[in-house]
Design a protein around this nucleic acid. Structure first.
Length: 556
DNA sequence: AAGTCATGTCGCC
DNA sequence: TGGCGACCCTGACT
């Protein structure tokens, strides 16, 4: 008589799975010529042929012969569409899409990410979308093949900080939401997290880092320095407050609180997003999750005027940016799928100068940093858009670039950032959502895109960083990029300037800092315990099913 | 090492 | 228009 074989599992390869209930005495019988029997059992039912209560899965066939071969024909089920005959998920370090769903990259049906024309192209994911105003002609191809290669490059070559110089693991206890470089002290990076904590890290000295936990009580969405006082920082948060904080003490002054009566449910709780300074007027601009813009007078430190509806009522305003040359010109973007341009001098209901339509939520809209004449937007329809002249035709973007930066509720929204040091105002930096198989490791690079051509200029990867990096900030003056990946921060430099000899000398590429569990007030992370250089220290784990090479640089 | 959980947007009814 | 549930590459922790 065969004994009942049970297996407690929920994802055996190729298996529909059945669980025991209240049974702690599971056992496996290997005498059945390697065949596995998966049975739904109940407490006390130990033998299949004796207990009529045993339920056999529909896909299991049981032969009551002497040898009692019990076979399984378990159908593979796609975790995405629940259909059979295919499976979505990682195969090694390569992700296989569900063929029944639209392409995860360009969102068009009929193909998957692997065969997507936007991915298969040499530009590898970041290529200009087909221009809707003019299909490609034969002349275009002639131009590309025969002429373009002979045109001398007039543009300066980009300097790409694509080598990790140093990093802080877990300075924050929740994912990083925003980054800002100190305006005058070049090696100081400020970071905000989902918990509302404010991190200050001097990456030049590595050890000097502080986390203030009492500035905000939930997501720190944006920060901006006072242009006339580089110790003072403005922050906006989903707790509904704008704070003005001395970064040397971490003591905040609340300039505005939209939830003075506390929590009365989500219908009334206001969250503040976007934050920018109008230096000439001494104005602070912030917006909320119901579509309203607020102005705060920086001198009197008080809100002024009435809130103005700038996006669809009830929809979140995600970002604000004043034009660098004409700060009266403001751009806002929001969940109503629009970016809108305003004149701060005459703000009224419906007075927007232009509205830029997008396929989905607009995560960010920034004027170009030098001339302010271009606009770069990031939308959740997996497209980066560039509008070339804010005084020109804004009905449609002058360029759309397909790029993977989808929405995921567990990730900080991706935002493409201008490189402020690029005199041609064409280089943009943005993290990539979908992974690429890099020598057997699934990694999510940070992409450097030439927005004038849509070409992927460079992609920054580091085998140790297996997490997605949605937050990236190019340094305003130096060839440095800061990125926030989950709870960690990294500093990237160009290969030739990254100081690897120095790193080897100090035997640590990375600095590990334990997050404080329940921080009240400032947290000083400078105790010796915070640093790990032990070769036995925990290695970074790859994601499920992804093959990750052992880390060397982390453990030097 | 499989399970758990945190929790934003969108589409559908 | 509003409430509800599905959800495609998460990541850290148990």
């Amino acid at each position: 008589m065969p004994s009942l074989t049970r297996r407690r599992s929920s994802a055996s390869p190729g298996g529909v799975i059945v669980h025991d209930e209240e049974d702690t005495s599971s056992s496996e019988d290997e005498s059945l010529d390697g065949e596995v029997v998966v049975v739904t059992g109940r407490k006390g039912s130990t033998r299949l042929d004796e207990d009529p209560r045993v339920e056999v899965d529909a896909t299991v066939s049981v032969k009551k012969t002497k040898a009692a071969p019990i076979t399984l024909s378990l159908k593979k089920v796609c975790k995405v569409c629940k259909g059979t005959g295919h499976e979505a998920g990682f195969r090694g370090a390569t992700y296989i899409d569900c063929p029944k769903k639209p392409c995860f990259l360009c969102k068009m049906p009929g193909h998957t990410t692997i065969s997507c024309p936007h991915r298969a192209a040499v530009e590898n994911g970041a290529v200009p979308a087909r221009d809707s105003r003019g299909a490609q002609t034969h002349l275009d191809y002639v131009f590309k093949r025969q002429l373009r290669a002979k045109i001398p490059v007039l543009k300066q070559s980009f300097v790409i900080p694509d080598q990790v110089d140093c990093g802080v693991i877990k300075l924050h206890s929740r994912r990083v939401t925003c980054l800002e470089f100190h305006p005058t002290k070049s090696s100081i990076l400020l970071s905000g997290d989902k918990k509302g904590q404010l991190g200050i890290w001097d990456y030049g000295k590595l050890h000097e880092k502080t986390v203030y936990g009492s500035v905000h009580s939930c997501i720190l969405n944006n920060m901006k320095f006072n242009p006339s006082n580089d110790v003072m920082l403005y922050t906006s948060s989903s707790d509904g407050t704008v704070c003005y904080t001395d970064i040397e003490t971490g003591i905040p002054l609340i300039l505005m609180d939209l939830n003075p009566n506390g929590w009365n449910g989500p219908a009334s709780w206001r969250m503040l997003y976007g934050l920018d300074v109008h230096p000439e007027k001494g104005l602070l601009l912030v917006a909320d999750n119901f579509g309203y813009l607020y102005l705060v007078d920086m001198r009197s430190q008080n809100p002024i005027g009435e809130p103005l509806l700038i996006h669809r009522k009830g929809s979140k305003v995600v970002g604000l940016h004043c034009n660098p040359l004409q700060p009266d010109i403001l751009i806002s973007c929001g969940n109503d799928h629009f970016a809108r341009i305003w004149d701060v001098r005459r703000l009224e209901d419906g007075s927007s100068l232009a509205h830029l339509a997008h396929g989905r939520v607009v995560n960010s809209a920034y004027f170009s940093p030098l001339s302010g004449s271009k606009i770069l937007t990031t939308s959740q329809d997996n497209r980066i858009r560039v509008w070339d002249s804010i005084f020109g035709n804004l009905e449609s973007p002058s360029r759309e670039i397909v790029h993977s930066h989808d929405f995921n509720r567990h990730l900080t929204p991706f935002k493409a950032e201008w490189d402020p040091k690029d005199p041609s105002e064409s280089l943009a930096v943005i993290g990539r959502y979908i992974s690429e198989n890099y020598d057997g490791v699934a990694l999510h690079p940070i992409d450097f895109i030439d927005t004038t051509t849509g070409q992927l200029v460079a992609e920054a990867i580091q085998p140790d960083i297996t997490t997605i990096s949605p937050v990236n900030k190019p340094h305003p003056r130096e060839d440095i990029l800061a990125s926030g990946s989950s709870r960690s921060l990294f500093i990237w430099k160009p290969k030739e300037t990254a100081d690897f000899d120095e790193q080897r000398k100090r035997k640590s590429d990375f600095v590990f800092v334990r997050p404080e569990k329940d921080s009240k007030g400032g947290m000083d992370c400078d105790s010796d315990d915070d640093f790990v250089s032990d070769p036995k220290a925990k290695k970074p784990k790859g994601h499920k099913g992804r093959k990750v090479k052992p880390s060397v640089s982390l453990l030097l």
